[in-house]
Design a binder for these strands. Structure first.
Length: 453
DNA sequence: TCTGGGGTCCTAGGACCC
DNA sequence: TCTGGGGTCCTAGGACCC
């Protein structure tokens, strides 16, 4: 049997742990830059607030409602969900973290137990220790487990854990389940199925397997059919290393000039290098993309993306920042107002052994670079992120002031950049990510504890 | 005025090899 | 008149997930 543990309204629940006054009240959490609504409490969902709604429309759509609003605070969400996973990991022989708020568990060692009771107890434990409400689904395969967790979320009677362990329960669940809600059926596939008169998971599972194979000619759809009929065929994931890594942001405002863009791109590249080192990998291809504001029909539009190969696969900040800057220089066009940029690293491989290029830097220099990165990582871990950065990552004085203001609002830590700010570049429209409603970080910063109400 | 940020996998088609 | 029969690899685009 498989289980899935799914945090209820994850980001909202994280915020509520430190704001118990918001229990039973409508709460929403926004994306970066306070752009869109990405999480909603049950009360907010009931009011009809849709996921993905641009934040600026909220006041227009719901002028008379009192809604608590939070900017996203990923430091807090990572810490809280990490605690949930740490509790889960002590209970099961193996698990797979599927996303920030979902975790599959393998339960083959628990056949002698009352699994339904085990799930209810796990919910209680997570709620008591972390304050996070979760829904648990248990079934003979992952598709049915996901379905069960939806029932656990929807109906109070399940006491947060729903188990599908007999054919009778499976068929009952399938009949109640809209086809579009099945894991793996997105908008397109669901529309196609509906046009064929298939409304529920049961309708689909009743079809002839050969017919489904012929008609849809898609291995994933056939697998879903098999799982709805009780087989266990969706491959088990392992904690795989990422095959591509991307760091990108929309800007708060728009940026016209190359120098400011280059600073942002350098920072994204440095972040990618850090992520590569964290998972013990190197890249041999660095891509950069640029885009103007696609919502502004009144402005000239330009988008581009290019990649550059590295001579030697690398995870060195210096190498990757340099490659990204080179690509940016190629794709940058003056005369546009840019809204978004990002860096992607591809062709990721384990960092040992690395095939070195005959004509590239010698082994000695390579080792020196490696040691430099290790030391920078260590200092940044200990003294706070971005204590040491490359010169090219350094924002202009205006941007720097905004960052410091923001840091002083959210943290009293002494860390932060201490370099002299002599390099004042072109003025830009705006720069630092907007987080007007960000909560404190009492789980990761001592000084934020005193900010709690 | 204001519209997120990540990922994975599959498929078809083309280029190339012998 | 007749014009083979395998392969692999890469890429772009689409669909899906959270």
């Amino acid at each position: 049997m498989y289980g899935i543990i799914d945090c209820d309204n994850c980001y909202v629940s994280c915020e509520r742990v430190f704001r118990p006054d918001l229990k039973d009240k409508p709460v929403v959490v926004l994306s970066n830059n306070d752009g869109c609504i990405v999480a909603r409490s049950n009360e907010a969902k009931k009011m009809g607030i849709k996921a993905g709604t641009p934040y600026f429309q909220l006041a227009q759509l719901f002028p008379n409602e009192k809604i608590a609003v939070f900017s996203s605070n990923y430091e807090l969400y990572a810490e809280m969900t990490g605690r949930v996973v740490s509790l889960i990991s002590k209970e099961v022989p193996a698990y797979f973290r599927y996303s920030i708020d979902e975790c599959f568990v393998y339960l083959e060692d628990k056949n002698h137990l009352d699994l339904k009771k085990w799930g209810e107890d796990l919910h209680k434990k997570i709620n008591q220790y972390v304050g996070m409400p979760v829904s648990i689904g248990i079934a003979p395969n992952k598709t049915l487990a996901k379905m069960a967790s939806h029932f656990a979320k929807k109906y109070k009677g399940y006491r947060h854990c729903c188990m599908i362990d007999t054919d009778e329960k499976r068929i009952k669940a399938l009949k109640l389940y809209p086809i579009g809600d099945v894991w793996g059926f997105g908008r397109k596939n669901a529309a196609k199925l509906k046009s064929d008169g298939i409304k529920t998971a049961y309708d689909f599972a009743q079809l002839d397997k050969e017919w489904v194979t012929m008609k849809y000619n898609n291995i994933n759809i056939v697998r879903i059919w098999q799982e709805l009929n009780g087989e266990d065929v969706v491959p088990n994931e392992v904690m795989a290393k990422k095959k591509t890594i991307c760091t990108s942001r929309s800007f708060n405002g728009m940026i016209p000039d190359f120098d400011s863009l280059a600073t942002h791109v350098s920072n994204y590249a440095a972040k990618c290098a850090e992520k590569l080192r964290q998972q013990g990998t190197v890249t041999s291809s660095v891509g950069v993309f640029l885009s103007t504001n696609i919502f502004r029909n009144d402005l000239a539009q330009y988008r581009n993306y290019q990649e550059q190969q590295l001579f030697t696969p690398s995870n060195s900040t210096i190498t990757i920042v340099q490659a990204a800057s080179d690509v940016l220089r190629k794709i940058y066009q003056p005369g546009f107002l840019y809204k978004k940029a990002g860096v992607t690293v591809l062709e990721i491989k384990p960092d040992n052994p690395i095939q070195q290029d005959l004509f590239d830097i010698n082994a000695d220099q390579f080792q020196k670079m490696k040691r430099l990165d290790e030391i920078i990582d260590r200092i940044n871990r200990f003294h706070g992120t971005e204590t040491i950065i490359l010169c090219s990552q350094q924002y202009t004085k205006k941007e720097q002031t905004m960052i410091e203001q923001e840091q002083s609002q959210t943290s009293l830590e002494p860390a932060g950049r201490k370099q002299a700010l002599h390099n004042v570049k072109t003025e830009v429209f705006a720069n630092v990510i907007k987080h007007d409603h960000r909560s404190p970080n009492p789980t990761t910063r001592w000084n934020d504890i005193i900010k709690l109400k």
